[in-house]
Design a protein around this nucleic acid. Sequence first.
DNA 1: CTTCTAACA
DNA 2: TGTTAGTA
Length: 126
Amino acid sequence: MKEKELRRSLAVLPIGTVMKLTNLTARQIRYYETQELIKPERSDGNRRLYSLNDVDRLLEIKDYLDEGLNMAGIREIFMQKQLDQEHRKEQQSKTLTDDDVREILHDEILRAGGLQGMSPTSPKLR
DNA sequence: CTTCTAACA
DNA sequence: TGTTAGTA
């Protein structure tokens, strides 16, 4: 699930391809960049290189524009989305995973069994 | 031929 | 946003 996100963020598409994929003009794509809505990679002789994520981002921008939002508004939405996912990752790092719970439960059972002696034929608890 | 920056009859 | 000029 990490390999896929890596490919998705690989910047390899020239602006011409992005134009066809998004139906946006080069002018618009470059303009949105000046508005901090996208940050294309730069390579070769200063040519812009976009990733599939950038394409999705541009598609979202087009939708928000249709909904009447301006560049600043869209930028705020992206920033908010960024904060949301950062918050989620932080929570996930502090939340007990299923494996953690299983391990804790296992230790508790060993302790109880150690005091009283468990039958070797007791059903496997994992 | 494609892309880039800058500028506007 | 479109378009065009002069480059790289």
